[in-house]
């Protein structure tokens, strides 16, 4: 496989996988929290949170990328803080690519998880409370296992979206081979140079295979989890 791909192509594939895995793993706890908050809690500013979560879905990706650059760039309010206090730079680094991918994938992840939270019967959680379970224990022993299929579906969807993210990524972290050049950016770059078609095509095939693989895996996992939850 390594022979089959040029080092540059291989680098793009490895980077994409790394970016997407980090983006998914780090945003998952936040995604569960947001989904539970939106599905169950009532608090001031709920509409605002709902809007913020869904914003990346409807904004042009390039706008999201630019807003990320303004906020998380070295000069931005958050980016400046992170650099001054922790020495962390996000703009034009692979970590920034992960952030962009996470933000873009977040609405999809939250939607999938939220649907599964809404499907959980709160009366089961009441029953658990009468049996002696405190709220965190109810969440860990009843709610979480019941929404597991939704979490898996949300995570896989987010991973697939992160693999394909292009607009926000290229605006926020540019297209630096080995640092921020993910598969879509690499395909775009190869298409800009004469004779790059073959490389672009190989990456397209890999993209399709990875996306299909993720989808099949998620189907299998969530079907297994659903069977466990339905109790048959």
């Amino acid at each position: 496989m390594i022979d089959w791909l040029s080092p540059e192509e291989w680098q793009a594939v490895a980077l994409s996988l790394r970016v997407s895995l980090w983006a998914t793993a780090l945003s998952l706890p936040l995604g569960v929290l947001a989904a539970v908050a939106l599905a169950r809690w009532s608090f001031p500013g709920k509409t605002l949170l709902n809007g913020l979560v869904h914003l990346p879905l409807i904004l042009p990706p390039v706008v999201t990328g630019y807003l990320l650059l303004l906020t998380f760039g070295r000069m931005g309010p958050v980016g400046g803080f992170l650099y001054d206090w922790f020495g962390i730079t996000l703009a034009f680094r692979w970590t920034g690519a992960a952030l962009a991918a996470a933000v873009m994938a977040f609405p999809l992840m939250v939607r999938a998880i939220r649907l599964s939270v809404e499907a959980v019967d709160p009366r089961l959680e009441q029953a658990a409370a009468t049996l002696g379970a405190s709220r965190p224990v109810v969440f860990a022993t009843v709610t979480l296992p019941l929404i597991l299929p939704g979490i898996i579906a949300g995570a896989v969807l987010a991973f697939a979206k992160a693999m394909g993210e292009f607009g926000a990524t290229i605006t926020f972290v540019s297209n630096i081979p080995g640092e921020t050049q993910t598969i879509p950016s690499a395909i775009y770059a190869f298409l800009q140079v004469p004779g790059g078609d073959a490389s672009a095509f190989r990456l397209v095939v890999i993209s399709v295979v990875l996306a299909m693989g993720a989808l099949i895996l998620s189907e299998a996992l969530s079907r297994r989890a659903a069977r466990r939850v339905a109790g048959t």
């Binding site: 009441q126 409370a129 339905a230």
Partner: peptide, 21 residues
């Protein structure tokens, strides 16, 4: 006391068994 500390055995109309157990 919060519900989980009251030690009541509550039997509901719909049994409310946990489906994943």
């Amino acid at each position: 006391l919060p519900a989980h500390q009251r030690r009541v055995g509550y039997i509901f109309q719909d049994a409310r068994l946990f489906p994943h157990m």
